[in-house]
Amino acid sequence: MEDKPKITLYGDYASQPTRACYVFLKYNKVPFEFKQVRVTKLEQYSPEFKKINPNAKVPALTDGDISMFESHTILRYLHESRKLPDHWYPRTDFRERAKIDEYLDWHHNGIRLGAGGYIFRKYMSSLTGKPAPKESINESLMNLKKSFKLMEQYWLKDDKQKYLLGNELTLADFSCASEITQIIPSNIASILDGYPKVKAWFQRILDISEFNKVHHKAIATLSKYFQIIDDQGNKPKL
């Protein structure tokens, strides 16, 4: 028995892709160590972290002597190297696998562009000293609605389907749901009501205890912060 797990995940609970990897490891009971890299303190730019990920983004993963970044790469690698159940990312049904890849590739400039873009522009951009203009916040909202609509019409079109790519969990589910989490404490949470299939699917993922534990914490933390910004926005002008 090894004292220490070989795998170290570097990241921040406030990061959607970090949470996707974290929940995936927990759900599959893969032993790992978690090292916090606080993005609010810009720790991802530290020389030590840049040795692990020269791209200076979270999450990153080390496994013995190798390191890698990009959450979807981490998920694929863990699945293959830890021989995790086939349903996550089928090894012989290449068409099923391809449809998961199609989602994972769309994700970056699909749901992440909309959800992550909205939250960044609306709530975080002022921290950088350059608050995003209203038009660009609206542009992100349009992107998010477009992504939800596509999810309703494509991935979740079959009413009886439990998850994004069928009736079993795949790599796509935690990744996508992690992006949606940040919408819940925001001022646009109610738009989910317009997309009932997305809402029902998200609730199903939120009911998974490994996912719930981490994401409830994230929602609570974000909620406090978003409230402050929303209150400021609602203050009447003097």
């Binding site: 791209n55 190798i66 790469t73 694929r76 690698y77």
Partner: peptide
């Protein structure tokens, strides 16, 4: 081989946002 494949996947995933 998973380690070699991860290098290629890492590029392919990074590509979209960079």
């Amino acid at each position: 081989e998973p380690r070699l494949r991860a290098k290629v996947d890492q590029y392919l995933d990074w590509h979209h946002t960079f």
